[in-house]
Amino acid sequence: HNLTITQGKLFFHYNPKLCLSEIHKMEEVSGTKGRQERNDIALKTNGDQASCENELLKFSYIRTSFDKILLRWEPYWPPDFRDLLGFMLFYKEAPYQNVTEFDGQDACGSNSWTVVDIDPPLRSNDPKSQNHPGWLMRGLKPWTQYAIFVKTLVTFSDERRTYGAKSDIIYVQTDATNPSVPLDPISVSNSSSQIILKWKPPSDPNGNITHYLVFWERQAEDSELFELDYCLKGLKLPSRTWSPPFESEDSQKHNQSEYEDSAGECCSCPKTDSQILKELEESSFRKTFEDYLHNVVFVPRKTSSGTGAEDPRPSRKRRSLGDVGNVTVAVPTVAAFPNTSSTSVPTSPEEHRPFEKVVNKESLVISGLRHFTGYRIELQACNQDTPEERCSVAAYVSARTMPEAKADDIVGPVTHEIFENNVVHLMWQEPKEPNGLIVLYEVSYRRYGDEELHLCVSRKHFALERGCRLRGLSPGNYSVRIRATSLAGNGSWTEPTYFYVTDYLDVPSNIA
């Protein structure tokens, strides 16, 4: 807008934040220059609390790290170098490059900038070799853009010569660093050979998330399962459950009422301010606690030095998902009996873990797994792929695949051998790939016309006998059925096997 004052003059007093240069501009645009008398524009009460600059400061050096910015700028000295009290560095987070010096300023003089007072450097006698002032900004957020400017702080001049310097606002972004852990990993099994893994992005990506790394490792069953005799009275049979499938998407929606109208769909109840505040506090606490764990609990591995020492970490090797089922080394339970199943799973520490690289999504279907087997899954978020990966501390989750139908069934015939004193040795093959492992066998036998009897055969007993022995049988026709019990439950009964026990007292003698 054009402003013209045809008559009258300007009068400025007691404006401590208004620089004289701005008042002189007002004289020019209003056409009143030359009308004012000496005392109409006070030299001592206008701009006496402001830094009124008329020179431009330029930054000469900028260096960044993930949490620091090192700045240096060209030296500046007023005509009387004693008038320079120091520099004021202003900075704040700036997602967009549209910041002005006066953003967030209120009537009390406060604003949204963080201000650092910096002492002037030592003055050199040689004007050509003056030290460049600077400042190291610490405690910054990774991968965050900051708006920065600097200006001088000078003393009051009796001659009211307006001098000083100020830089333009520059924008500097800190470097990326390792992201925080992925949030809320959930693993479920939808079949006997697959596990579905879902997660949420890290709360602090500290860069642009480029991919996720998912490692999985087959877990050995508890050692007590191999040692305890679950045929003993009072000892509860062990059981394991597989990871249940995901709930429906509708039930997972946030901010939804727990109660549904019987007449149909209901609208979600909005969260109160107290609920939102509580969630923010919980989120802040979780982030602080995660940072504490990362800094205190997890110790970084030592990389190899120039002395030739090897990095103890196993090298990563990509495998196809079809090879995942046989990740671990199978060892027989008892070496003397080769027909026992290889369900003991000690994992070799030198073995390469299978892994998958996930790009542009937060889910993965891990296939080719062994049925009813526990897996430990390790999830890392990465925001750099080359020249070397920059990934987060791992988040861990466990899951067990679903049982395989008929995996616990005894394959092959049940054979028998009759000894003296009416002892019958029953023999059968253990299931080759049971659900988890076989903890015991149930032997059901009966003599024709009598009630059915049951015998429990422990895992250890089966390994020693290759089956079991029935003792003290009365003469007669017998039928026997056997079924295995694994961590997933009972298998199917075998087809009945028949044998006849004679009275050993009636056996004919070869003595003449």
Score class of each variant (00 low, 15 high):
Thr502Glu: 15
Ala381Phe: 02
Thr241Phe: 11
Asn255Ile: 09
His461Gly: 09
Val501Cys: 11
Val329Met: 11
Asn360Ile: 12
Gly234Leu: 09
Ile276Asn: 13
Arg466Trp: 04
Phe289Val: 12
Phe337Ala: 04
Ile209Pro: 13
Val331His: 15
Asp385Arg: 11
Gln252Pro: 07
Phe337Trp: 08
Ala335Phe: 09
Ile366Lys: 05
Ser363Gln: 15
Asp204Thr: 04
Ile276Met: 06
Asn208Leu: 07
Asn326Phe: 10
Ile418His: 04
Asp409Pro: 00
Val397Arg: 07
Asn477His: 06
Phe499Glu: 00
Ser305Gly: 10
Ala335Thr: 11
Val439Met: 04
Asn421Trp: 08
Ser284Phe: 09
Gln219Tyr: 15
Tyr292Asn: 06
Ile377Asn: 01
Asn422Ser: 14
Pro403Trp: 13
Ser344Gly: 05
Ser320Leu: 10
Arg301Ala: 04
Phe337Leu: 11
Tyr498Ala: 13
Glu258Val: 05
Val443His: 01
Ser479Gln: 04
Tyr448Lys: 12
Asp503Gln: 13
Phe289Arg: 09
Val397Asn: 11
Glu362His: 10
Cys468Arg: 02
Val424Glu: 02
Ser274Pro: 11
Gly368Pro: 08
Ala405Asp: 13
Gly491Leu: 01
Glu224Trp: 07
Arg313Gly: 04
Pro312Phe: 11
Ile377Glu: 00
Pro496Cys: 15
Glu465Ser: 10
Gln429Glu: 15
Gly472Ala: 14
Lys432Val: 05
Leu237Ala: 14
Ile276Asp: 11
Glu356Leu: 09
Phe372Asp: 04
Arg286Glu: 14
Tyr396Ile: 07
Val296Asn: 14
Leu293Pro: 04
Pro312Met: 14
Asp311Glu: 15
Thr494Gly: 01
Val359Arg: 08
His461Ile: 11
Glu417Leu: 09
Ser509His: 01
Gln256Glu: 02
Ala263Phe: 05
Arg481Ser: 05
Ser342Phe: 09
Val414Leu: 08
Met427Pro: 01
Leu232Tyr: 10
Tyr500Ala: 12
Ala394Tyr: 12
Leu455Ser: 10
Pro332Cys: 04
Leu455Val: 12
Ala336Asp: 13
Ser474Trp: 08
Glu265Ala: 14
Ser367Thr: 07
Arg316His: 13
Gln429Ser: 15
His371Trp: 09
Glu265Thr: 13
Ser268Thr: 15
Asn255Lys: 08
Pro312Leu: 13
Cys269Thr: 08
Glu224Tyr: 11
Thr303Asn: 14
Asp311Tyr: 09
Arg319Pro: 07
Asn326Arg: 10
Asn255Asp: 10
Pro300Asp: 15
Thr373His: 10
Cys468Leu: 07
Ile209Lys: 15
Asn422Leu: 08
Arg481Trp: 07
Pro270Val: 10
Ala263Glu: 08
Arg400Trp: 10
Val423Met: 06
Leu235Arg: 09
Ala463Ile: 08
Leu487Tyr: 12
Val324Pro: 12
Phe372Met: 06
Asn206Lys: 05
Glu279Leu: 15
Ile418Tyr: 06
Glu388Ile: 15
Ser367Tyr: 08
Phe226Val: 08
Gly374Ser: 07
Ser492Tyr: 03
Asp229Ile: 10
Glu282Tyr: 03
Pro312Lys: 05
Asn326Val: 04
Ser342Arg: 14
Asn477Lys: 08
Gly368Val: 04
Gly449Asn: 09
Tyr504Ser: 13
Cys468Asn: 01
Val296Met: 12
Pro245Phe: 15
Pro270Tyr: 09
Ala336Thr: 09
Asp385Leu: 09
Glu249Leu: 10
Tyr445Leu: 15
Asn477Met: 07
Arg286Pro: 09
Gln380Asn: 12
Val414Gln: 02
His416Ala: 05
Gln256Arg: 06
Asp503Asn: 15
Arg240Ile: 07
Gly368Arg: 08
Gly472Phe: 09
Glu217Asn: 15
Phe246His: 13
Asp291Trp: 15
Met427His: 06
Arg447Leu: 09
Pro354Trp: 08
Leu225Thr: 14
Asp229Leu: 08
Ala395Val: 08
Ile482Met: 02
Lys271Tyr: 05
Pro387Asn: 02
Asn383Leu: 09
Cys456Trp: 00
Ser363Pro: 05
Leu225Glu: 07
Leu437Tyr: 13
Pro354Arg: 11
Cys382Leu: 01
Arg483Met: 13
Asp204Ala: 13
Phe289Gly: 04
His461Asp: 15
Ser367His: 05
Val457Glu: 02
Pro434Gly: 03
Asp323Glu: 11
Asp506Gln: 15
Gly325Met: 14
Lys287Tyr: 12
Phe285Gln: 12
Phe226Pro: 10
Val359Ile: 11
Asp229Lys: 06
Val365Trp: 05
Lys236Ser: 13
Lys278Thr: 15
Ser486Arg: 02
Phe462Asp: 02
Leu225Tyr: 06
Phe419Met: 10
Arg286Cys: 10
Ser392Met: 03
Val358Pro: 07
Glu247Val: 12
Tyr448Trp: 15
Pro349Thr: 11
Phe298Trp: 06
Arg483Phe: 01
Leu505Glu: 06
Glu451Lys: 05
Pro314Ser: 11
Pro508Arg: 15
Asn339His: 09
Ser315Met: 13
Ser248Thr: 07
Leu426Ser: 02
Gly472Gln: 06
Ala395Arg: 06
Glu351Ala: 03
Gly476Trp: 00
Arg353Ser: 10
Thr343Asp: 06
Thr373Leu: 05
Leu379Tyr: 04
Ser458Thr: 13
Gln275Trp: 10
Thr210Ile: 14
Val334Tyr: 09
Trp216Glu: 01
Glu279Pro: 08
Thr485Ala: 15
Lys271Pro: 05
Asn421Arg: 13
Thr373Gly: 05
Tyr375Cys: 01
Tyr292Trp: 05
Thr494Phe: 02
Ile366Leu: 12
Arg301Ile: 14
Thr272Trp: 06
Asn490Lys: 04
Ser444Ala: 03
Tyr441Met: 01
Lys406Ala: 14
Val424Arg: 04
Leu464Thr: 12
Glu290Leu: 13
Arg471Met: 05
Arg376Ala: 04
Val365Gln: 13
Leu505Cys: 07
Arg376Lys: 14
Arg319Trp: 07
Thr415Pro: 02
Arg319His: 07
Thr485Ile: 13
Phe226Thr: 10
Leu437Phe: 03
Leu437Gly: 04
Leu455Gln: 07
Asn339Glu: 13
Ser342Met: 07
Ser257Ile: 04
